[in-house]
Nucleic acid binder design. Structure first.
Lengths: 144, 144
DNA sequence: ATAAATCCGACTAAATAGATCGGAATAGCT
DNA sequence: AGCTATTCCGATCTATTTAGTCGGATTTAT
């Protein structure tokens, strides 16, 4: 029930871009170093994010990446869906895949996974990068 | 963001036991056949469920498995935790593992995963096997 | 021209998932 | 007592996925 490193790194990197929004493109090397992520692995993560239109890139010297939209327009769910595929605890209830399961009409457990999928989607779609970037102001909010 | 076949099969098998609660122990062979699951794989799933005290077993001829408690006392979350490990979208916020992450105090994204973890736990803990077994009465609830 | 950067397909090692195998132990039935 | 149904359980196996690396082409500011 875990997301992969790809998804986790992707969200972290996007959060960084959100903090530096409007500061010009940030080179991948810097993001990788600051977050302690393999540069070449991060390259693989940014490729689909760009193709999906979540980030823009500037090639050549002084180039780098920036969010394609203001942070409040980008939902964590958007990022996760691109890097991890459709949100679903089991394949047979994957978003967009609704009608495929042969056992659908007799499956006792389908309802569980649909509910779980919907709740997961809701949570991830109601958090934007603006929310995430703001977290830096209220670190340690609940005194552990 | 998926659970494994182990978790999915486990919940399905437990749902069957819930439907036949108080009908005497059911042999694994029958569950495997009815659900179309590999018998030997299902054996591996029932072992930890028994050790955790969710089911009881009767050995020998006429033996089999039964729920150790009434269906309304067993939460789907209990089953998932045993078969999949602690509920958590990322390891660093795993239930019971709370204090281990070194980046905890500076991590912008930790809040996302904590929220997601809590919501997932809530959903899975508020559904009991009694709820699941009842699904057989209201199949196709929303006329798609 | 050079250096800084993105772009991108291919490869690899390790871990995980999903079984399967082989047999021991236990209990009901005749 | 012997046969059969069943749980118990460690070991092994194969395919896929994951996480990361490699090598190089392309673009652009200076």
């Amino acid at each position: 029930m875990k997301i992969t490193a790809k998804g986790e790194y992707g969200v972290r990197a996007m959060a960084m871009l959100a903090q530096d929004f409007r500061a010009g493109p940030i080179p991948l090397r810097e993001i990788a170093d600051r977050e302690g992520i393999s540069y070449q692995f991060l390259e693989q993560i940014f490729l689909p994010l760009r193709r999906a239109g979540l980030i823009t890139s500037v090639r050549g010297a002084k180039g780098g990446y920036a969010l394609a939209h203001p942070p409040e327009k980008i939902k964590v769910g958007d990022i996760v869906r691109i890097l991890e595929g459709p949100i679903a605890p089991v394949d047979c209830v994957a978003e967009g895949n609704e009608s495929s399961c042969k056992r659908k009409s007799i499956c006792l457990t389908r309802g569980i996974w649909e509910k779980l999928r919907d709740t997961m989607s809701e949570v991830l779609d109601e958090i934007t990068l603006a929310d995430v970037a703001m977290m830096s102001h209220k670190t340690n909010k609940e005194g552990s």
